[in-house]
């Protein structure tokens, strides 16, 4: 037997209005927790997008002259392959460097348009067997003077530390977000319990005359879902605002030399918003689902 849509909407609407204060608290908590989760997701994506090469254990970059010959490149490669200090070596030719460049600057198409693969140096990315600074710099020094080498760069310990701190901070944001989601589930659970209690006479009569379980339960489950989705809507606005603020205050500010590396593109913003709505709906459904199955037994 189908449950009539207008009935469900009417019942849900009157429940939402009846419990305004509780509903409001539940929606706000959902919104704050989801906004934190979204911010954490965006920063996490930003960290992955940033600090070229730092996400792996590449510690040494050898840039070749743009005009370096194939022989010179081959000779550096041989030297690296022979070295006992090198664990892994990865060669970026101009095409591959250009791909990486396009990925890193895809929010700035103007810049990408002015660059061709020929403008970019070829490079070796090296993972040493030991992360000991002396070993790494000795390895770099031995290669610096080779024919065709433009320069040697070391992954800065400083950048690494900033990245680590941002990541730790971000983990805490996610933990707080997760705890608040737990609180949201409990709040929605309580709101639905109150709604069930407020309508206990109707529910008693419905049971007596043989209303099906879902007919009785659906308006309450929908109510919880609405809590989750309204909270998600607010959180999506929050994420959008966070995105704008971050771009204005960090990404486009030269002064924040490392924080301005943490950036994400609009696709990742949409992903964050999709996560907000999915988690919001789930939070509402779980909270009301538990309440309904505990308080609306046959």
């Amino acid at each position: 037997m189908a449950v009539r849509l207008d009935y469900v909407l009417k019942e849900t609407g009157s429940n939402l209005a009846r419990n305004f204060t509780l509903t409001f608290a539940a929606i706000l908590t959902v919104a704050v927790s989801l906004a934190l989760v979204a911010a954490s997701f965006l920063i996490g994506q930003g960290i992955n997008n940033s600090f070229l090469g730092l996400r792996s254990d590449v510690q040494l970059f050898i840039y070749m002259n743009p005009g370096a010959t194939a022989d010179q490149i081959q000779s550096v490669k041989k030297e690296l392959d022979r070295s006992a200090q090198v664990k892994e070596v990865d060669f970026y030719d101009q095409e591959r460097s250009f791909e990486e460049f396009k990925r890193l600057f895809k929010e700035q198409p103007d810049l990408v348009a002015t660059i061709t693969p020929a403008d970019l140096p070829q490079s070796f990315r090296i993972k040493p067997t030991s992360s000991d600074a002396d070993v790494v710099s000795a390895l770099g020094d031995s290669l610096k003077s080779k024919e065709g080498v433009l320069r040697v760069e070391y992954a800065a310990e400083y950048a690494r530390q900033v990245q680590r701190s941002v990541r730790t901070l971000n983990t805490w944001v996610l933990i707080v977000g997760a705890v608040l989601i737990g609180a949201s589930v409990l709040l929605i659970f309580n709101t639905i319990r109150t709604a069930v209690f407020a309508r206990r006479r109707e529910i008693e009569v419905m049971r007596l005359v043989g209303a099906s379980n879902w007919f009785i339960r659906l308006p309450f489950v929908v109510e919880g879902l609405v809590h989750g989705l309204l909270g998600a809507l607010l959180a999506a606005l929050g994420a959008w605002g966070f995105d704008a603020l971050w771009k204005r205050n960090f990404v486009n500010q030269v002064a924040f030399e490392l924080l301005n590396q943490i950036r994400w593109d609009s696709g990742q913003l949409w992903q964050a918003i999709a996560i907000i709505f999915a988690v919001g709906a789930l939070t509402g459904a779980v909270g009301s689902g538990i309440a309904v199955s505990r308080f609306l037994r046959i």
Binding site: M1, V3, R4, V205, V209, S212
Partner: peptide, 8 residues
Amino acid sequence: AFALEAIG
């Protein structure tokens, strides 16, 4: 009417 609405 409620009794009839409740059973659809």
